[in-house]
């Protein structure tokens, strides 16, 4: 995320991490190219205009603090209850005249951008189905572990339905080199956020890939510490609706490290807010028509994220 911001941003970028060594390493690596990245204390962040919360959830209490100091917030949280709490800060953000972008990561985040982009080729959209493969950093891996043991939420014909995580197996094809993976329901915030961006939808689901081992051990504590960075991940968004009076389905996929996508998306959103391309006040999600979604998606693709469309034979 800091790398995305540092590419063409002339303003100072302050990096804060609970682990100072990590923050110093990042600042020194990016600072070689551009002298705009520096390590900051938690107190120094109060002078910022935009805060990107890229750490592990929960983000809601931190977001509230920033909003009360008139700082716009971009959150990459992928926790359902945290996202709900962040959306509840809408009135506070409006009162302070600042923007709060919830779920600006890979899934949620990129999924909303892709759904909005695809919806342009439809006359009417009524279903969005998201599948995610892979994890970003350790916090993302822990969230993936929790998601399989929690309750998945999905929008189905006018009502929210809850199903156990790890159920509802579906074989999902991701672009190469990821390929096909069995994906299962999970406690993922995508349906909540995509439904907010597209109130007209009738069905929204989100699934996550998992192995047998993942599903068996999901209900136990995560005994093996997650890796610092996951491998190649994938995101698949399927949109269904009507075009020229006929039922139509479009599928789009992303192959990239999940953390890389999340960093690019959150960085591009922060840049859009910083440049003042859009005057926002209140809580919003990616894919919402209030945001310049096409511009953000262009910027994300420009930053090196590969997007593939499924074409029929």
């Amino acid at each position: 995320m800091a790398e995305t911001l540092a590419v063409d941003l002339q303003n100072q970028i302050l990096v804060h991490d609970s682990n100072k060594i990590v923050a110093n390493r990042l600042a020194s690596r990016l600072g070689k190219k551009r002298q705009v990245v520096s390590v900051a204390s938690r107190f120094d962040l109060n002078s910022a205009t935009i805060a990107v919360l890229a750490g592990p959830p929960p983000h809601s209490s931190l977001a509230r603090e920033f909003i009360e100091k008139n700082i716009s917030v971009v959150s990459v949280s992928d926790d359902v209850s945290d996202c709900t709490n962040l959306l509840a800060l809408d009135t506070l953000a409006k009162n302070h005249g600042v923007a709060l972008v919830v779920g600006a990561a890979s899934s949620p985040g990129m999924s909303g951008l892709l759904a909005r982009s695809m919806s342009k080729s439809f006359d009417a959209v009524d279903e969005v189905h998201v599948a995610l493969h892979g994890t970003g950093g350790p916090a993302c891996a822990r969230q993936h572990h929790r998601a399989l043991s929690g309750q998945s939420v999905g929008w189905h014909d006018g009502e929210w339905i809850r199903r156990p995580g790890g159920s509802g197996r579906e074989l999902c094809w991701f672009p190469e080199p990821v390929g096909a993976y069995d994906c299962y329901r999970g406690e993922l915030p995508d349906p909540l956020l995509i439904k907010k961006a597209f109130p007209e939808l009738e069905r929204v689901t989100a699934r996550v890939s998992a192995t047998r081992r993942d599903r068996v051990f999901a209900r136990l504590p995560q005994l093996i510490p997650p890796q610092a960075e996951g491998g190649m991940g994938g995101l698949r968004v399927e949109v269904r609706g009507f075009r020229d009076g006929q039922r139509w389905v479009e599928v789009i996929g992303v192959v990239e490290r999940v953390g890389q996508v999340a960093g690019a998306v959150s960085g591009c959103v922060a840049k859009i807010l910083h440049h003042g391309d859009v005057k926002l006040a209140g809580a919003t999600v990616l894919g919402d028509s209030a945001l310049p979604n096409e511009k953000i998606l262009h910027d994300v693709i420009d930053s090196g994220v590969q997007v593939h469309a499924f074409v029929r034979a």
Binding site: L171, G179, D302, V307, H308, F310, V311, R312
Partner: peptide
Amino acid sequence: GVGAIKQGGWRKIIDQK
């Protein structure tokens, strides 16, 4: 096992500004 896709395939989207 699951083989490769037999019908259709993936096409990279190139950003057209």
